[in-house]
Simulated assay, not measured.
Amino acid sequence: MFRLTISAVPFLLPLLFQDAFGWSPVLAGSLVLALFAGNMAIKPVTTPLLRRFGFRRVLLSATTGAALSMALAALLTVETPVVIIVVLMVFSGVVRSVGFTGYNTIAFADVGHGQMTAANTLASTLQQLAAGFGIACGAIALRAGSALVGADALGALGAGSEAFRVAFLLLALLTVPAVVEAWRLSPGAGENIRPSRQA
């Protein structure tokens, strides 16, 4: 569910900025680029976070942060200062990256050495499927938002803002199962592959 909802966000954001807010593709793309800047900026810190806090706390923080970022995206309006949007995009990118790294690593915690090649192939395939389904999930959430508010999300300028608000809230709700899953993890989950504090 984490991959599914997270993959929908970069699909919906440019549509929100261009079709609902009426901003140029350059501005919309620059704001989405901030999301990926946050994604890259946190990468060097992810391993130390796993060393210090373990998989359970890191994944719980990342999934909760992802749900929060989607709920906050639902509050964006055309009047929202650009600097606030940039901060939200960077935050969204940070929790996205930390969550992806945590899930990508812990997925192999119980896989034996002899099964690692097959497991890696399966994991890569599932990642691609989740990305594709995430875009579909975003489109369905936007269509559901349009139906609920009675607006054409891609119609007249500003007419679809409410539809996007509903779509982001639906995605935030769909992320809650990932939060529950992370909360239910054992505190020692993934200890056998957890990076050593001395490393």
Results as ranks from 00 to 15, higher is better:
residue 170 L to M: 12
residue 122 L to A: 15
residue 173 L to N: 01
residue 77 T to G: 13
residue 1 M to R: 12
residue 44 P to H: 11
residue 183 W to E: 11
residue 21 F to T: 08
residue 149 V to H: 14
residue 93 G to I: 08
residue 84 I to Q: 11
residue 80 T to S: 14
residue 164 F to Y: 12
residue 16 L to H: 03
residue 131 A to S: 14
residue 72 L to H: 05
residue 9 V to H: 01
residue 198 Q to L: 14
residue 165 R to A: 11
residue 40 M to P: 00
residue 139 A to I: 05
residue 74 A to S: 12
residue 74 A to I: 02
residue 39 N to Y: 09
residue 118 A to I: 03
residue 38 G to N: 03
residue 159 A to D: 12
residue 104 N to Q: 10
residue 65 G to S: 02
residue 24 S to A: 08
residue 103 Y to N: 08
residue 42 I to N: 02
residue 57 R to Y: 03
residue 97 S to F: 00
residue 46 T to E: 01
residue 145 G to D: 05
residue 12 L to S: 02
residue 51 R to A: 15
residue 172 A to Q: 07
residue 41 A to V: 07
residue 195 P to M: 09
residue 189 A to I: 04
residue 45 V to Q: 06
residue 175 T to S: 13
residue 130 A to T: 07
residue 182 A to L: 05
residue 168 F to N: 05
residue 39 N to G: 07
residue 73 A to V: 04
residue 48 P to L: 08
residue 45 V to D: 00
residue 8 A to Y: 05
residue 173 L to E: 03
residue 186 S to L: 11
residue 68 L to V: 15
residue 77 T to A: 10
residue 181 E to L: 15
residue 125 T to M: 12
residue 78 V to H: 12
residue 47 T to D: 01
residue 175 T to F: 08
residue 59 L to D: 00
residue 57 R to F: 01
residue 112 G to E: 15
residue 17 F to Q: 01
residue 43 K to F: 01
residue 94 V to R: 05
residue 88 L to C: 09
residue 165 R to Y: 02
residue 126 L to T: 01
residue 105 T to K: 11
residue 162 E to P: 00
residue 140 I to C: 06
residue 73 A to H: 15
residue 183 W to M: 14
residue 113 H to D: 12
residue 61 S to Q: 04
residue 64 T to L: 15
residue 131 A to C: 07
residue 13 L to E: 02
residue 130 A to K: 01
residue 145 G to E: 01
residue 175 T to P: 05
residue 43 K to N: 07
residue 124 S to C: 04
residue 131 A to R: 10
residue 83 V to C: 08
residue 144 A to D: 09
residue 12 L to T: 03
